[in-house]
Simulated assay, not measured.
Amino acid sequence: MRQPSATPSVRARLLGSWRMIDWKVFRGGETIDPPLGPATACTGLLIYTGEGTMSANLTLAERAPFADGSLDGGTQQERAEAYRSIISYAGTYEVDEPTATVVHHVKIATFPNFVGADLTRTCVFEDENTLKLDTPPMKMGGEPLGSHILWQRKGAR
């Protein structure tokens, strides 16, 4: 007789690469666009490694290139728009299995205030290939707003 398999740990379920499929921000009972614009105009990549490293990248899907094409180039306006159109950070992570939370220990980030921060996310697995990360309220537009991002495992349909 075959024994039922144990449910994998939260950490084991997080491992791998995920693509953003939706992003919601909440103001009271109202859903508003995320800081980059409508979720349908955004894309993202989230990676968790077995060694404990993570990377989160959210960006507008369509970003204008710099006219001069130089890595260190761009006009002041082009650079401001490039910064406005991406949220990216990386570091290490820890999982609290009983609460199904993951803490991102941020080492580098496009948003300087994230560097050195511990960002806690609640993990809700809608199925084996769909992950919703709920965030506690974070300041957006000067006010604390809750949000969640829906991720789909890369390669899953």
Rank of each mutant, 00 (worst) to 15 (best):
P34K: 14
I32C: 13
K132D: 09
Q3C: 08
L71H: 07
R27G: 10
A12K: 15
T49E: 11
M138E: 10
L133H: 12
T49A: 11
W23F: 08
V95N: 07
P38Y: 15
V25D: 01
P34N: 09
E94K: 13
E126M: 07
A61Y: 04
L46Y: 05
A117S: 11
V115T: 02
A6S: 11
E51D: 14
Y93K: 07
L60I: 14
M138K: 04
Q76D: 12
H104G: 13
L145R: 13
G73K: 08
R63Y: 14
A64S: 14
R121S: 01
A61F: 11
F111Y: 13
R27V: 09
Q76K: 14
V95G: 01
T120R: 07
W151S: 04
G37S: 06
G74D: 05
G50R: 08
A61E: 15
V10H: 02
F26M: 09
T122N: 02
D72W: 10
S9D: 12
P65N: 12
G146R: 10
L14P: 11
K154N: 11
S70T: 02
G146N: 08
Y48E: 07
R27H: 05
T7H: 01
R13N: 12
E81G: 09
S5P: 04
F125G: 02
G29F: 08
G91T: 03
R153H: 04
G44V: 02
A109P: 06
I21M: 03
R153M: 07
A56D: 13
Y48T: 08
A41R: 02
E62Q: 12
G155A: 01
G29T: 11
D72S: 06
T53Q: 14
Q77R: 15
T120F: 00
K107Y: 09
